[in-house]
């Protein structure tokens, strides 16, 4: 059964597709960013060509110095630093989204490639699967 072949990871099908995870929401207002990150971390075991894009309020997910102590929420931002260990190395942030929020690369807790909307659009068109969180 599929469950047994793919649940542990690996890539029995041998098919490698381009998966892009698009993160466009602020980190704690909804559960989407946290559960989206869980997909990326679990999905990393399946040997696909993975990238993550951060657009709109999604760029706030990468903001340094997140402190959730008074909200009762778990601060999951350290997990973004672990992405590299999972071989998730293609991280893109949209230039316009960063600028509109007064953010630069220096404000982010991981190194990203900053792309314009047009460049990101082009990259999205090359993807096989886009999951939106």
């Amino acid at each position: 059964m599929a469950d047994e072949t793919m649940e542990e990871g690996g890539n029995p099908t041998g098919v490698v597709k381009k998966f892009m995870y698009v993160n466009r929401r602020a980190p704690y207002g909804t559960v989407y960013p946290l559960e989206g990150l869980e997909v990326v971390l679990i999905g990393a075991a399946f040997e696909q060509d993975v990238s993550m894009a951060f657009v709109d309020d999604g760029v706030y997910q990468l903001k340094k110095g997140q402190d959730t102590a008074e909200t009762g929420m778990k601060n999951f931002s350290p997990a973004y630093r672990a992405l590299e260990m999972y071989d998730v190395e293609k991280l893109y942030a949209e230039k316009e989204s960063l600028e509109a929020r007064g953010l630069t690369q220096d404000d982010l807790l991981v190194s990203v490639e900053v792309l314009s909307t047009a460049e990101l659009t082009e990259l999205m068109e090359q993807q096989d699967v886009i999951l939106n969180y």
């Binding site: 469950d3 793919m6 098919v15 597709k17 679990i42 399946f46 699967v129 939106n132």
Partner: peptide, 19 residues
Amino acid sequence: ISGLGQLIEAGVLADRLVA
């Protein structure tokens, strides 16, 4: 009930993954 691997696998096996 199963794991997130099933989502990735669906993306691999399908011609189109529609969310």
